[in-house]
Amino acid sequence: MVCGGFICTKNALSALNIIYVMVSLLLIGVAAWGKWFGLVSSISVVAGVISVGAFLLLVAFVGLCGALKHQQILLFFYMIILFLVFVLQFSISCACLALNKDQQNQLLEVGWNKSESTQRDVEKTLNCCGYSSVDFNSSCAAECFRNPASCITCSTILQTYAGEVLRFVGGIGLFFSFTEILGVWLTHKYRNLKDPRSNPGAFL
């Protein structure tokens, strides 16, 4: 009876937040690894990924502390923040899955024009030059630029994989958004349960 209520809900909520901690540490680790080995030279990209990981880590610690100590205030703030993250992530995931080819191309071009360091990263990784045309009078980080006639434009490669990447990102986002709404439900349920170890007459 107890396992079906307080203890099991507490364990489920704790386990969910431990998963969030591992995911956040993975994000931070991957960003640091990419920067350390020179796979990503853009500071803004690395900082963005690390910021997302740090935010998720903070939220997970709040939820974990609230679950272990059955703290009403921590659980309340955790539930509100997790719901807001769910709304944002669900919206972005649906947008990723709904983009058509033209919208994908526009998004890629905007991202390309936004950062020169990102352009160099893409050119070096994908061995391509320029977005829609190869400028023989400019520099390029790709190995193929030693023989510029052999270079292809980066848009050709990016457009090939853009749909798959967006579907992958959208699918992962949807999966985690459902775990977040599960976390909101578990937190709401857990806040309204009485701790069997405390005074039976006390409201927690």
Rank of each mutant, 00 (worst) to 15 (best):
G171Q: 10
T187W: 00
F176P: 11
D135N: 12
I152L: 06
S139H: 13
F178M: 15
F145I: 15
R167M: 11
H188E: 07
K189I: 01
A141K: 14
G173P: 05
L193S: 04
T160H: 03
E143C: 05
C140I: 13
V165C: 07
L186R: 00
Y161H: 13
E180M: 14
T187C: 10
F145A: 06
H188S: 09
L193M: 04
L174T: 09
L174F: 07
A162P: 02
F136D: 14
K189F: 08
I181T: 10
G171A: 07
C140K: 10
T156F: 02
G170W: 01
E164W: 04
F168W: 09
V184M: 11
W185D: 02
G171L: 03
V134F: 02
C144K: 05
A142S: 13
I157F: 06
G183T: 11
C144M: 08
S132Q: 01
S155E: 09
C144T: 05
I172V: 15
F145E: 07
F168N: 14
L182F: 14
G173N: 00
A142N: 05
I152D: 00
I172C: 15
Y131K: 08
R167Y: 05
G183P: 05
T160S: 07
V169N: 01
L174P: 06
Y131H: 03
T160Q: 12
N137I: 14
S138D: 15
G171E: 01
F178Q: 11
W185M: 14
C154T: 00
P148V: 02
F176D: 14
C154N: 01
K189C: 02
F175T: 15
W185V: 12
N147L: 04
G163P: 05
S132K: 09
N192H: 03
H188T: 02
G163S: 15
N137P: 02
W185P: 00
K194M: 00
G173F: 05
W185Q: 01
A149Y: 07
N137F: 11
D135F: 04
W185N: 13
F136T: 09
G183C: 14
F136H: 15
E164R: 13
A162S: 15
V165L: 10
K194S: 02
S139M: 13
S138Q: 10
L158R: 04
I181S: 12
D135H: 06
F168D: 06
R191N: 04
L193P: 00
L182E: 11
L166P: 00
V165W: 05
L193V: 01
C140M: 12
G173S: 09
D135G: 10
V165G: 01
K189V: 06
L186N: 12
E143H: 12
T179F: 15
T179D: 09
S177N: 00
S132C: 05
Q159G: 10
R191Y: 05
T179Q: 13
V169W: 00
S150M: 02
C151D: 02
F136N: 12
V134I: 03
I172A: 15
S133Y: 04
